[in-house]
């Protein structure tokens, strides 16, 4: 029998219930962990990424001897302690200077990891422009065809999308959209184009060889909505910072079994299905008064068989040469007979 922790008072009970798995999940909390050595660049980069992620972010201010790729157990421990499912580990070594490792967990176990090297970092303070309000949901923008084709970049896109906008919301106040996080890549090198298209078996190797992979540029802009004469405004951007130039390094793809478990969706409720989620009921919708309206689909009408006005002149003549026509006529007569009787 498993030992169950029984809450001793109502407050701790509420806290435990809040941590239990839910059908619709809360925003992921990210923990920012400093490794044994982090330089100034990494410190600032993590601080500013955290300011974008706030209020769902926790900073570990002390140094931790943590190597996610060698031993992820401390991360799994912290995930349970802090009820967090995202980690950003900063670690700078001689072999891998200024490395940021993005780690995602599922059920307290590491799901996947991706290490990104910071090549260039420009702080928010260096742009003398208005900043976004903390806690506002950013728009996400990805630019490159590799986000749809290359496994490494598909993972990066999924990670970043999860990092900044994982919460499913059903409505947004349009005036509250203040900033956009744009992730684009350097031009795709020709070697990558050929390798992925010509020899699919080699695509794994090419994904391991990170030198050929293009750089990632993360830019943050604030939005200005200008009137355009129509309902839809024209968008102008102003750089807000931070901006990062990153290069891909090591990664750990998700375990297929675990990924399958993590992608499992809850069964949709009846009212949600009626609203239009999941399998949609065809030809049914609700009008503004809340009444259910159905559309009846009538099969396509065959206009050739349409009975028009009968006129003597349009009648087919009785005398026509050719045996086949006669047979046809006989057939028609036969079919007409029962109707007449």
């Amino acid at each position: 029998m498993l030992r169950t922790v029984k809450p001793r008072n109502a407050r701790s009970k509420r806290a435990l219930v809040a941590r239990e798995p839910k059908e619709v999940e809360d925003t992921r909390t990210a923990v920012f962990v400093k490794g044994t050595h982090t330089g100034e660049i990494l410190n600032n980069a993590m601080k500013e990424l955290m300011s974008l992620k706030r209020p769902n972010a926790i900073a570990f201010s002390k140094k931790n001897a943590v190597r996610p790729f060698e031993d992820p157990s401390p991360l799994e421990f912290w995930a349970g302690k802090n009820d967090a499912s995202l980690f950003v580990v900063g670690q700078s070594t001689k072999k891998r200077p200024d490395g940021l490792t993005f780690v995602r967990t599922f059920d307290g176990k590491v799901l996947d990891m991706c290490e990104l090297g910071v090549d260039k970092f420009v702080s928010m303070a260096e742009f003398k422009t208005p900043k976004s309000t903390p806690g506002h949901r950013p728009l996400m923008h990805f630019a490159s065809e590799l986000f749809d084709t290359h496994p490494r970049f598909i993972q990066v896109k999924s990670l970043l999308l999860d990092f900044f906008g994982s919460e499913v919301i059903d409505g947004i106040h349009l005036a509250g959209i203040e900033h956009v996080i744009s992730v684009s890549l350097a031009p795709t090198p020709s070697t990558l184009n050929n390798a992925t298209q010509a020899i699919p078996g080699l695509s794994d190797e090419s994904s391991d060889d990170t030198k050929n992979l293009p750089k990632i540029h993360i830019r943050t802009y604030t939005l200005r909505l200008l009137s355009s004469g129509t309902r839809v405004p024209r968008v102008e951007l102003a750089p807000m910072g931070p901006s990062l130039d990153l290069s891909l390094r090591r990664h750990r793809p998700p375990d297929p079994e675990m990924w399958k478990a993590a992608m499992r969706r809850p069964k949709l409720k009846k009212q949600d299905i009626e609203k239009g989620l999941g399998k949609k009921k065809k030809n049914l919708d609700t009008d503004e008064m809340g009444d259910l309206r159905g559309r009846v689909h009538v099969g396509k009408q065959d206009l050739d068989k349409l009975q028009t006005r009968k006129m003597k002149g349009l009648k087919r003549g009785p005398v026509e040469s050719g045996s086949s026509d006669e047979e046809d006529e006989e057939g028609q007569k036969k079919s007409k007979r029962p109707k007449a009787s």
């Binding site: 749809d148 795709t188 830019r219």
Partner: peptide, 27 residues
């Protein structure tokens, strides 16, 4: 999910001449 993905390949020339300008325009 409030996201947009631009699947057009990045142009080599624009990237080399003015990086920031090009990124901002695509964004």
């Amino acid at each position: 999910s409030l996201s947009a993905t631009d699947l057009n390949p990045i142009e080599e020339e624009g990237y080399k001449i003015d990086l920031e300008e090009g990124l901002q325009n695509t964004a």
